[in-house]
Design a protein around this nucleic acid. Sequence first.
DNA 1: CGAGCTATTTTATCTTACAAATTTGTGTAT
DNA 2: ATACACAAATTTGTAAGATAAAATAGCTCG
Lengths: 235, 235
Amino acid sequence: MRTHRGISLTYGLLETLGQSIVIGDFDKDGFPTEAELCAKFGASRTVAREAVKMLTAKGLLSARPRQGTKVEPITQWNLLDPDVTRWLMERQYSNKIYREFTEVRLAIEPVAAALAAQRANKADIRAIRDGLNGMRDEAADHDAALLADIDFHVAILKASGNPFFLQLRALINTALRISIGLTNKISGHTASIPAHEAVLIAIENGDAVGAEKAMRAILLESLELLASFNPETTH
Amino acid sequence: MRTHRGISLTYGLLETLGQSIVIGDFDKDGFPTEAELCAKFGASRTVAREAVKMLTAKGLLSARPRQGTKVEPITQWNLLDPDVTRWLMERQYSNKIYREFTEVRLAIEPVAAALAAQRANKADIRAIRDGLNGMRDEAADHDAALLADIDFHVAILKASGNPFFLQLRALINTALRISIGLTNKISGHTASIPAHEAVLIAIENGDAVGAEKAMRAILLESLELLASFNPETTH
DNA sequence: CGAGCTATTTTATCTTACAAATTTGTGTAT
DNA sequence: ATACACAAATTTGTAAGATAAAATAGCTCG
């Protein structure tokens, strides 16, 4: 097996196996044994073992002598691991996963905005404003506007001063790409600038309650917009 | 090196290195090279490499040929990984980390309780009630009461029906152990049964708003109790 | 039937060798 | 002296073979 796109064999196999596990490819026949893995993917034992070890570290696999390697139930997966989140995104879209993402965002982001209102320094606020300005300036270019939107939300997580909140950036990234991807299909709608601006202003004013409410409004609006496109998305 | 407590060499080294990294042991001299690791811990290259690969999967390390293996900045760590959370707990207690844990709980648990009020089935409610009863019955035994308290909170995460919320069980586990450990030092105080009961009742009644408020009250109460013991905990 | 021993399967560990990537140094030409 | 090209050295990446350990299944003997 040759390296793929400059990625090492181990990381290539990690990606392949991670995606396959998340899709459910091994649900029928169980996960291959070490020897089978090597044969199936043309990998050396070293590569196969190290990929399996990384997947084990992310909670997707467990291995024991004689018993073999098996896929863990989803309750054991580190769903907030950036790789796992991405693999979940790369498999076919489902209303269920989008709703779950949004529920997490509705829990975290308003609280993060409230904390940001209390703690943001000048650099934090500049980063948030840069995101907002990017959304405005790139309104014509959907991809660029999406990136600016992501920057806006991540900047607020950062400004919360709580590193655990920042852990959700991969999830937000994923959720926004899904959301924007779908809403663009409808009408080329771009996220509401005034709603985002309200969050920024509240944070600048140190208005924690206002920032929390404004952020919640953004997420609910996005959820409703999606529901209008795809009614069963609501629940 | 011999196996330790039935744990494999690789997992033993994973623990040792994970704790050392989180403590900051390698901040001065940088992370050892593969050969140095083997020498330092008496491990084979296989064991050393697989432990490093798992730490890489958790975002704590990165490795490149010729450049060596290095500790990533904390912004790259998978802080919500159960192992990482535990290593953070095992290092010396700090008000900062406890506050951060509680902020995350304040974001997630009230929302989880609200969702649980909408979605909990009979088994979910039974599990929550079992936790509450356990807290009552074991009031004399602080360790048993702590475990019941944890069960109560985790059962609500589960009842939310959102698997991402359940990911925080390791963090809640950790936070509760810290919290109870400290409050016990004060006065042998046990978590407020009526406050917990209020959450259960709201969930049983399908009262999402009530469940959310009651859960938030529990967390704020615990935070205040701790602040009264340790004033600088508040901020 | 049951306890304990044996065989078997699969992962865990160790060792050695070589490949690849990247930095550092070195030399040569201009 | 500078800039480019090339060689050397260092560290991780990959491969392969052998042995150890763990856990299951089956078998033997009482």
